[in-house]
Write a protein that binds this DNA or RNA. Structure first.
Lengths: 139, 139
DNA sequence: ACAAATCTTTAGCCCGGGCTAAACTAAAGC
DNA sequence: GCTTTAGTTTAGCCCGGGCTAAAGATTTGT
């Protein structure tokens, strides 16, 4: 993903070039958490079905999550989240829910609100999220 | 970017796996159009500065845009958009402006609205955009 | 007109996230 | 217990979008 402007890059905390990887990680930990909640365990095949990608892609991505200390799994065993992964999952879920409820409150149909909220959730700052919440409360 | 669910993939028009590439293309044509408008021509170096990436990355991306019939440029010459590229740029700009105005109207600060709208614009459907416009008009 | 400065391209690398094919492990059925 | 079936991993490929280093083209200035 292209950085949006030069200013951002020259900041002290020069953002990683891999926003996209972060988004994927958020999607995965969120999905893993929800699958564990729903059916007790999360298997690679479940994730493959959930995201509509091949199981091989899932394996590779989960490998990265392990590398980054977000997930853990013994070979051929179900996937679990680390404390860090669970924290990220909770945060992502919260954002996701707020965005989804907000779009619905604005009059967007459920189906479209679902799709759009999945795309939007990774791009709303805390400030914007607060604005969404204000709207939700004030209506 | 991971596909969001299996359903979408099993649709007749199985969406391309490269949503991300489309977003980049939209950002680029939008930037190219705006640079041409501002200063008459758009050079690779301008884009590099605008996105905060190396000029080499710009060259590669512009090559892809040419391949896809969105941009055109003779070697060592300024970059121009094709009719198709201009159409995409107009559509992106419109979406961008609506999202930006909407966030501001919701009470988000200008700076944050600017950043968030850049991330969000690629993920709002026409239906959501309509809802944003309704809110803008009705307030 | 030529030298210097600026801009662009090419070559070659990295990683993320897709894929298929093939090998391997674990679970289920008999 | 052994075989089948289901799930997982490994190998090896593709493309997008980052990068640096080096080479080539254009513009500018004297």
């Amino acid at each position: 993903m292209a950085r949006k402007n030069a200013a951002k890059r020259s900041q002290p905390f020069d953002r990683t070039r891999h926003d996209h990887a972060r988004e994927t990680a958020e999607d995965y930990v969120e999905a893993i958490a929800s699958l564990i909640e729903e059916r007790g365990v999360c298997r690679g095949a479940d994730l493959a079905k959930h995201f509509g990608v091949s199981h091989v892609t899932v394996t590779k991505t989960v490998l990265r999550l392990k590398r980054e200390g977000l997930a853990e799994a013994a070979p051929y065993r179900p996937i679990d989240l680390t404390a860090k992964g669970r924290r990220m999952a909770r945060a992502a879920k919260r954002r996701h829910e707020i965005v989804y409820a907000f779009l619905q409150a604005l009059g967007v149909s459920d189906a479209v609100a679902k799709i759009d909220s999945e795309g939007i959730e990774h791009h709303v700052s805390e400030e914007t999220l607060k604005a969404f919440q204000r709207y939700l409360e004030g209506k």
